[in-house]
Design a protein around this nucleic acid. Structure first.
Lengths: 200, 200, 200, 200
DNA sequence: GATGAATGAGGGTTCATTCAT
DNA sequence: AATGAATGAACCCTCATTCAT
């Protein structure tokens, strides 16, 4: 039923290809930034030609949009899991911080789109992006509020605390270097420690 | 004396014009991002033509570079003053946070440029930019280290604390709205409170 | 075999187009000079648009470069043939002069480019151009030296004699008119006579 | 009478300035070629500003035109002198060759305009240029014809011989290097020897 | 006479996008 | 489903030219 018809088969094939392209795009963008990543390069990475991309995506913006969606979806998935698998709110928040840092550093550019979507997207696509971005942020809100409610956290302004938290994390990608002094793990721990001092 | 003043007059005129252009550039760039801001638009904003800009700036990169310099220089000036006029390190840091927020919010456009210089500048100009950026940051480092030394602050990783601090502040411009719930003053106070919890 | 021919087909097609463009470029350039020939005009001549040229050539310099190469290659081919098919060095030199005059007059535009490569090319491409130009000239050197060795010619400075010879021939295109008093054949004969007086 | 009035005085001043500019222009052009020589550079050489040039010359073409005139006038002057001061036609021709080589090498670019005036000048100015160029060439014609008439030279086609001669000389500037193997004097002698073999 | 400043036309180049095959 | 080829709009930059002062 689910995968029976021929149509679905070819649809599956297309979806596969789309994902491949998105991954390639994400890679190139992480190297060069979105504006400088050209359709040509993205295609070349997959040994395709420029024109072929337009079979799968309406235009460049659409492609970037879907890159963003994919990455954000994944990240949200991880947040959700963390949320349901940890016990204390502190533990959850620590895990979430770790997840965010991981994405901010490793998926730098595609994650970056969260930061300044209005420079990247036209009005049409801006809305769903912002929605997803809010969904992502809301997981942080949840823990913080839960923490406040059960007395684990003492801050008053949950929204602003979340802003502070995410802001400080986003910034990491501006300076973090893979071969630098600190490992990703150290980073995750230190930031967790510091940011929990804010919350408590 | 005579020659001097005449010279200064025309030099002043050119400097004025340069500043005008820089302000225009900064405005456009913040609306559209650096890459998408065109020389034409920047000129049009001032009712000039594209070509005229090249009378004042060698090329686009040079213009962006000087935008950077101007704003950063001003901000550094304010930090310096704060540093020398306050008593406790906590007081200094609070003031510095206030200054940074003010720039990030009110001079949003200009200050923004600090964020991603490496995508904007060629290697030649990247270096002096990073230097100035470091100079700016170093004022924060100084207070933090001084605070640690005299026991006011307890954090271990001064550099990372500074990163966290500046990152969280930079992010403010992503969401802050003049007519929003919080006044600038409230913002400055809350962020100071929260970030000092990190330091102590 | 199948793959080979298909490949060759499309390769051939692209080579054809490239040649078309080169011919167009060569025509425009000889009307206006290299600097004043614009990519737009070159394209317009073929009812293409500027941008399309960049599908075939990296940039203007590359296009000019290949113009050079193509014509020079052909001419070298003819010299080589002459060299191997004639008996006396005098006969060879006469034939070579005829070839050179033919190119200078009939393929005026293309051949012209040999004249001032150093104002046209950047250092990178200058070298291979000069090399090919030298290769062309070296065929003349060979006959002259051979002629000297076997006593047919009596001049001392073979290099300078070659310069004089080629210089005088190149100049022909400055004044020669198809419908003028002298036929091409007369021209070839008279110049041969005169220049051989130099050699003997 | 000649230089009495104030008007003439200032006219003289203007003429002086014009010559200065022309010399500067000639210098820059000899370094960069005419197309690449900018009004700015020419002015800078004289510590003037671009705009001032337009007080003295209608436009760039006019300036180039007058450069050309000046140099050609000088060269013609030298030819005239040679013509009247030498005894045998051979001696005259040798001297003329020396003069031409000197200009072709030392005043490379300004002399060069003789070579391809149609690329440099619009129809308006082309005519007087060609006229002067013919005047220049006619001095060579005269000696050659005189030489034929008195039996010194044996060639039949005086025009073509002159073309051959000037062509070979013009070409020198394509390859001659100041610090090369041959001094200017050697060059003048060798070319004279070779070209007189043609005439005789 | 000279200059500073501005202009505008044009050139080279890039690149997302289209479309016939 | 993919490609090769072409397009055209947009961008940066240069430079001869102008003109008020």
């Amino acid at each position: 039923m689910q995968g029976g018809s021929i149509l679905t088969l070819s649809e599956n094939k297309i979806r596969k290809k789309k994902e491949e392209i998105i991954l390639s795009a994400v890679k190139i963008m992480n190297e060069k930034g979105y504006q400088r990543a050209t359709m040509e390069e993205i295609a070349a990475e997959l040994q395709m030609t420029k024109g072929s991309l337009y079979y799968y995506f309406k235009n460049k913006e659409d492609l970037i949009f879907q890159c963003h969606e994919l990455v954000l979806e994944q990240a949200i998935g991880e947040l959700r899991e963390v949320f349901h698998n940890c016990i204390s709110n502190e533990a959850i928040l620590r895990q979430m911080i770790a997840v965010h840092i991981k994405y901010a550093v490793l998926e730098k550019e595609s994650f970056n789109m969260i930061i300044k979507p209005d420079e990247t997207f036209s009005t049409d696509q801006l809305h769903p992006i912002l929605k997803k971005r809010n969904e992502y942020a809301s997981w942080f809100d949840r823990v913080i509020i839960a923490g406040i409610d059960c007395g684990e956290f003492s801050i008053k302004e949950s929204k602003m605390a979340r802003m502070l938290l995410l802001g400080s994390l986003n910034w990491i990608q501006q300076w973090y270097k893979k071969d630098g002094e600190n490992s990703l793990l150290e980073l995750q721990n230190i930031y967790s420690d510091y940011l929990l001092k804010v919350m408590k």
